[in-house]
Write a protein that binds this DNA or RNA. Structure first.
Length: 714
DNA sequence: TCGGAATTGATTTTT
DNA sequence: TCAATTCCGA
């Protein structure tokens, strides 16, 4: 008689769930029941009495995943969601730092800056240091600071070789000082500070090491170096680490994710058990065969082969469009047909490599009257009006938050201009205080009265807020700050007003689920900016980047823009490691589909205001051709699709092609040395015409026609 | 202090 | 192309 928790698990899943308390690596392929294993494991450990709820620590990357894990454990057994430490790396670090803010050297009500806030903090700092932002672009400085933090390096540990790097280090140092003065931490700081807290406080470290006997990590391939070190420290007392991940789905290296952690983990934790979950419960055979064949081209991988008990299913449909416009047209027609066949729109996803691609698709869908939803825009807590309202709330909680103050001191406008602000900031800098303190001490010149009024406004709000619940404080802030009035008089302010109402409702929900504490709510706003990912069951076609589709599945998936230079992207063509990441990205895209998969490409596409001609993506060649069904081989076979005439395509083509060469823009050609390419442009008519050819990975080259010996291919 | 013009730069982005 | 940012004049 098997335990009810273990029913229906396949042998590998069963082995993973019931592993003895040692560290193990679970290689969980796409659609292999990863979350089920993770949640069953926790429920198993608890229900067999191997560990109590306080002994569990489970880490995920997204709030969504954390929430789902809690829900699913809760469905398996009664739990106390607040007693279980299940959350994101940042969420858990925040939790720990709140509990031990004193040991961590943080003020009790420290605030969390999101990426936007961090960038404005850096801009502000650079300005106050009088550094020109040509030499120090704020984005790069941010990258530098975050990069160092993620390697665990404080300014003192950073190496500097020349003047420039010394200055960067000085900026980093000054940035840290500014954050400390304002009582704010950025995302990376949350992790680093927590790491240092455990590293430098023996008793505390031993307490947590003794407490968390089982540490479970989701999406392990996405951990960065600091997160890995944090885990190592936390599990240093002999905890069993259950690391679940898939190296083939590592697509965030550009953000610091380090797949190498999977190798290091096996070594550092003396892992002797690696379990592969290879049975896929999602897709039909052909889709998996394609995915396996593609990812098999990657050299650096731990190795894994997905299989399914399902049938082979349909072939993979491929459409070769002449233009991005035509690709969009194809999508519309195909989606219409699917809809007629009774497939809900919400079960169809349209994936692309880069956000800019959605434009043409959206236009076509809109014209055709097909409901669609694009994922990836601003999230709720990132909206301007929400950030404004929260800035007032922040100021009430911690007036030294310069970011918050500068955001709203003149919004809505109250006659405090740039000049005044610069004076205030300068005073603050010289005296080493916050702008708020500078504002309180007067001396703002002509605008002194306006500044004093602002200070009074905030003080008055703070006094009133002391007796109010959080949702009421929000309503108070929105009204007293003048935001309400401002948006009422703005033409399209209604949506913003609705969002501000939503904010009060969000606060109400938060208070009922957690506690009535402004600081906690502000942390929540920074750490959970709102839903970004698609939710199942919506009556609209789902449009998103491949990155955004990770972890999701759909009955039907369209992967669009399969062209060299786009997918794989230009910037990844030269580096084999980057190219492998692009291939993993394609692998992720393919494995989103349950039943039907479409691949499409456009021979020409508007990019940065120019028409660009490209070859078909190498990923198409890397798929087993017998799995593919080309819908329009021998184009133009598909009728009724308007064909953009060359004269509208590019100014270059208005020029006549070199006589008798047989060349035209978009023509596929082969060169002895550079291989296959597409003609992009030509110039010169007379004795020695030149052609410009896009050879994909090799690059775009000008060739003298008379020597190039181009072979025409289509 | 504001609005229009010029300039710039454009993969992906869980927190 | 197109949007975000910066610049400049009233």
């Amino acid at each position: 008689m098997t335990h009810p928790l273990l029913e229906g698990l396949n042998p590998e899943q069963l082995a993973a769930v019931t592993l003895p308390p040692r560290s193990a690596l679970i290689l969980a392929g796409a659609g292999s029941g990863k979350t089920r294993v993770l949640t069953s494991r926790i429920a198993w450990l608890l229900s067999t009495g191997q560990v109590g709820q306080p002994g569990i620590l489970a880490v995920t990357f997204t709030n969504k995943a954390a929430k789902e894990m809690l829900t699913r454990i809760g469905a398996l057994m009664p739990i106390n969601p607040r007693g279980l430490w299940v959350g994101t790396f940042h969420g858990l670090c925040n939790r720990m730092l709140r509990l031990h803010h004193r040991d961590a050297g943080l003020p009790e009500a420290f605030q969390i800056m999101d990426s936007q806030d961090q960038l404005s903090a850096i801009k502000r700092l650079l300005k106050s240091l009088n550094l020109d932002d040509d030499k120090f672009p704020p984005r790069e400085v941010g990258h530098y600071i975050n990069g160092n933090k993620e390697e665990g390096r404080r300014p003192a540990e950073v190496e500097a070789w020349d003047e420039h790097s010394r200055q960067l280090r000085a900026i980093y140092e000054e940035y840290d000082r500014q954050c400390r003065r304002e009582g704010v931490v950025d995302f990376a700081e949350l992790l680093l500070r927590c790491y240092e807290l455990l590293r430098d406080h023996g008793p505390l470290r031993e307490h947590y090491q003794g407490r968390f006997r089982h540490v479970l990590v989701d999406e392990f391939q996405d951990t960065n170096r600091l997160q890995y070190r944090w885990l190592k420290l936390l599990a240093g007392g002999g905890a069993a680490v259950f690391a679940v991940g898939d190296d083939d789905q590592s697509i965030y290296a550009f953000r610091g994710a380090n797949v190498g952690n999977m190798y290091d983990f096996q070594r550092d934790f003396a892992v002797d058990t690696v379990i592969r979950l290879e049975q896929n419960y999602r897709s039909h055979g052909n889709i998996l065969d394609a995915a396996n064949a593609l990812i098999g081209r990657n050299r650096s991988r731990l190795g894994k082969n997905l299989w399914t008990a399902e049938a082979a299913g349909e072939p993979i449909r491929v459409f070769d469009a002449a233009s991005d416009f035509e690709e969009a047209h194809f999508l519309v027609e195909e989606v219409r047909q699917l809809e007629r066949d009774g497939l809900p729109l919400g079960d169809i996803a349209v994936l692309y490599r880069s956000n800019a691609q959605s434009r043409v698709l959206e236009h076509a869908l809109f014209t055709a009257g097909i409901a669609y939803r694009v994922y990836g825009g601003l999230r709720f807590f990132e909206r301007q009006e929400i950030k404004h309202a929260l800035a007032y709330l922040r100021l009430i909680t911690n007036s030294d938050d310069d970011n918050a103050l500068l955001r709203v001191i003149n919004f809505p406008t109250r006659g405090i201009g740039n000049r005044t602000l610069e004076t205030l900031q300068e005073t603050a800098r010289v005296t080493g205080t916050s702008v708020w303190q500078a504002a309180c001490s007067g001396g703002a010149g002509r605008s002194a009265a306006s500044v004093a009024r602002f200070v009074q406004l905030i003080e008055a709000m703070r006094a009133t807020a002391a007796n109010l619940s959080l949702p009421d404080i929000i309503r108070l802030v929105v009204e007293q700050s003048g935001l309400l009035q401002h948006y009422q008089s703005e033409k399209d302010g209604q949506e913003r007003l609705d969002n501000l109402d939503q904010l009060a409702i969000a606060a109400l929900t938060f208070v009922s689920e957690n506690d009535d504490d402004a600081t906690a709510f502000l942390a929540h706003a920074s750490l959970e900016a709102g839903d970004h990912q698609a939710n199942p069951g919506q009556a609209a076609l789902q449009l998103m980047t491949v990155h955004a589709a990770k972890g999701l599945e759909f009955h039907t998936v369209f992967i669009t823009g399969l062209e060299e230079g786009l997918f794989p992207h230009d910037n990844s063509l030269n580096d084999p490691a980057n190219l492998e990441e692009e291939r993993r990205l394609m692998y992720v895209a393919i494995t989103r589909a349950r039943r039907r998969l479409y691949l499409s490409l456009a021979q020409s596409r508007m990019l940065h205001g120019q028409t660009r001609f490209s070859l078909a993506s190498r990923f198409l060649d890397e798929l087993p051709q017998d799995l593919l069904r080309w819908l329009n081989r021998g184009y133009p076979a598909v009728g009724a699709v308007p064909h953009s005439s060359p004269s509208q395509v590019t100014p270059a083509s208005r020029r006549a092609p070199p006589a008798e060469s047989g060349l035209r823009i978009g023509q596929t050609v082969e060169h002895a040395k550079f291989g296959v390419g597409v003609v992009v442009d030509y110039e010169g008519q007379g004795a020695n015409p030149n052609v410009q050819v896009n050879f994909g990975a090799v690059g775009i080259k000008w060739l003298a026609l008379q020597y190039a010996k181009l072979k025409l291919l289509d």
